[in-house]
């Protein structure tokens, strides 16, 4: 693992700013693509980012029923987890397993954010967050297979392996597919997005306004960036391994994600779990096939 000597706080801060702005643009692009497919003009590209920034200058209200330090702290925990994941993953190329942990913290936070308000609507969302925690399965299966191949889970080693031996997507296509499903679940308007489904208003975020909502959305933007990055680097690392190629490839994948999200219906909670599990099992079968 390489920790660059130039790691000053400013450097890391700039990295975070860049990634969140870029991912905000990507999410705007994603929304635009969906709108175009549905024959609407759609919002401007910067809409998602403006939306996030808007919340930072809005008034903060905290419900009387909420469980107090938790209500604020857990939103910060979500953002903090993804900042950590971003620093460990794209910036320092450290152990991939820490990103798995951050994903787990994300799931816990989703759940806690809903519960801490005491609102029945937010509770629905958080119950579904527990249910959808099963989508961690592809996230785990994929690194397991990668570990069997490369004998390491340090991202730097995985990239080096791919530069020498070619991209892993050729060796583990089904594992790549499973990870792609995982990326889908983290995009807005996705078919597995039972947590954000319109039938439960805004899911677990129903009762969050002001700065806290802004922080939450910032965390989700970073999450989108990190997961896309992981997908690209772990499975296409032979080709995509410089910042420029990664950012370009992210734009490409966002287009594909937009197509998928626009053209698929929302699935029922238990079916969502089931489909994700099937993909994970397919990924396991990949080992037996090759």
């Amino acid at each position: 693992m390489i920790y660059p000597a130039t790691n000053s706080m400013l450097y890391l801060f700039l990295e975070i700013i860049t990634a969140s702005l870029f991912a905000g643009l990507l999410l705007g692009l994603h929304r635009k693509v969906i709108a175009r497919i549905q024959r609407r003009p759609g919002p401007p590209l910067i809409q998602y980012m403006l939306h996030t920034l808007k919340f930072f200058i809005k008034e903060l209200t905290i419900p009387d029923t909420s469980s107090m330090p938790l209500y604020v702290a857990i939103a910060l925990a979500l953002a903090g987890a993804w900042v950590l994941a971003f620093l460990v993953g794209p910036v320092l190329l450290g152990p991939y397993i820490i990103i798995i942990m951050c994903y787990a913290v994300h799931k816990v936070s989703e759940h806690g954010i809903g519960l801490a308000t005491g609102s029945p609507y937010a509770k629905f969302g958080s119950s579904r967050a527990v249910l959808s925690a099963t989508s961690e399965m592809p996230l785990v299966v994929a690194p397991a297979l990668v570990f069997v191949r490369t004998n390491s889970l340090i991202l730097q080693d995985i990239i080096n392996y791919q530069i020498i031996n070619g991209s892993l997507v050729n060796q583990l296509p089904l594992a790549a597919l499973a990870t792609f499903i995982l990326v889908i679940t983290k995009t807005p308007f996705n078919p597995f997005g039972i947590v954000y489904g319109k039938d439960i208003i805004s899911g677990f975020k129903t009762e969050h306004f002001g700065v806290i909502r802004g922080v939450l959305m910032f965390g989700e933007t970073l999450a989108f960036f990190v997961l896309l990055w992981c997908f690209l680097v772990i499975f296409f690392g032979g080709v995509i391994n410089t910042p420029l190629t990664i950012l370009l490839a992210m734009i490409g994948v966002t287009f594909i994600l937009g197509f998928i999200c626009a053209l698929t219906p929302m699935v029922a909670p238990y079916h969502s779990v089931m489909i994700q599990w099937i993909f994970a099992l397919l990924a396991i079968a990949n080992v037996l096939l090759i």
């Binding site: 990295e15 700013i17 860049t18 990634a19 702005l21 870029f22 910036v91 910042p243 950012l247």
Partner: peptide, 15 residues
């Protein structure tokens, strides 16, 4: 990986 080299691009694009 230094992503912040693209910060000017992104900021100017947003502006």
């Amino acid at each position: 990986m230094p992503y912040f080299q693209f910060l000017p691009h992104i900021v100017l694009f947003i502006i």
